[in-house]
Design a protein around this nucleic acid. Structure first.
Lengths: 233, 233
DNA sequence: ACAAAAGTGTTGGAGATACACCCATGA
DNA sequence: TCATGGGTGTATCTCCAACACTTTTGT
């Protein structure tokens, strides 16, 4: 009853990006700046940081994302809180915390957000990254710091459910996209293959997806019709 | 950078119960024990409390639920974190915190869980409540402490989405239920009316819902066939 | 010419929707 | 006998799944 609890609170952002081929996740390489980092001296993680004392959660999520990746105005959704008592106390993790956190021994509960980005639209962005950030194919994720592998997987699960009911999938597509890209994206997220003709019938019924009078250029096959998504407001 | 954050972390549980007629939410009346509480001296809230220093989130959720309501082994699911910086600092809320919390000025972030209970199955329970707990129809919720009205509504939204994809709706039904109850429950959660004959056709196709050779008794109309749900494992 | 993805229709079956009357019970 | 919810079948339409070949471009 008189036990006094005190937690650090953080946000971790799983940023999904689609490049027309594969679904990717944005990772940052964290280490001591100026220090020569041997293979084990840094760690890969999803962009995240502590919530400030007077800041709302959504606000913190977008501040942190913007600080670490200079992504602004992207779709962001809270999906799960991760609070296993020992989630940040792996061996390498402790070392990193000691260097970067004021209270490295404090328990940290993190709120997981995912965000959705069309990689094509944000191509120019990486150069302005504060830390080193890189897209990493979901199918080829390295071992990440803390419980970040779990967080990424949980984010993907949530995305899968959300795609069915909300129109968020378009956040992952560039403004102009082909039906091939659109279908591939569905196949990746739902993790099953779809019939091309049936898929296109469904798309034809979506009033918000409209054909442009423009085609792909410079591809080594028949150029595809481009489409766009008009928000239903 | 040198700002030091320190949060209290709590769990709040939205307990949904179905009594065959209406969907209800379990509320507790919190006040000073032994104190005569005028109409404004106590507050109604969803069962919740602080997470202990070495406790996981799910673990905390079920401990707290069990402490405050003596519900054990019920379905529990985390659905959202609430962290507006001022969420516990309403006027009446502050007063309550001063009496019951070691650090009443500390910011509290809460993790919302919902749980599902068949009221019929737990009828005998309320007598053993530590605090005063009572079922309150969702359609008739009073003003609650803190941001608990928001939490309840967010829980309901989540429930609505989850019902479509997981078999959780049976958690709200008693072991033996009628198709009328089953349909009413759907109608309430989905907030639309369903056609009786069509609904029953769907149920017939559910292999997990089986008819018992038993009927309702003591009702003032034709007694209904009872059904039960067998988990598909 | 070849490789690579784009594009295009039909059919059969399953599931969704709409709709109205009789039945068993307790009061 | 009346009020109350329980229980039942059919016809139509829409949606889903399965399936194979031709087209356009770049190399």
């Amino acid at each position: 009853m008189s036990e006094t609890a005190s937690f650090d609170l953080s946000i971790d952002n799983v940023v999904f990006g689609f490049d027309g081929e594969k679904l990717q996740v944005l990772l940052i390489r964290q280490g001591l700046p100026g220090e020569d980092m041997g293979m084990d001296r840094f760690h890969m993680a999803v962009p995240g940081d502590l919530v400030l004392p007077h800041e709302g959660l959504d606000q913190a999520a977008s501040r942190i994302l913007s600080n670490l990746t200079s992504l602004e105005g992207v779709y962001l959704k809270q999906f799960h809180a991760f609070g296993a008592p020992d989630r940040v106390f792996g061996e390498k993790d402790k070392e990193w915390l000691t260097r970067f956190r004021p209270f490295p021994d404090r328990r940290v509960v993190t709120i997981g957000y995912y965000s959705l980005v069309s990689i094509a639209e944000y191509r120019p962005m990486p150069s302005s990254f504060a830390s080193r950030a890189e897209w990493c194919p979901l199918s080829d994720m390295p071992r990440l710091a803390f419980d970040h592998n779990d967080i990424v997987m949980a984010g993907l699960e949530q995305l899968k459910e959300d795609v069915a009911h909300h129109n968020i999938i378009f956040e992952l597509l560039p403004k102009k996209f082909t039906l091939g890209q659109f279908q591939r994206l569905h196949e990746i997220i739902l993790n099953k293959r779809l019939d091309k003709r049936n898929f296109r019938k469904i798309v034809k019924r979506m009033a918000d997806v409209v054909a442009l009078d423009e085609k792909q250029e410079g591809v080594l096959h028949k150029p595809a019709q481009l489409y766009t998504y008009r928000k239903p407001d």
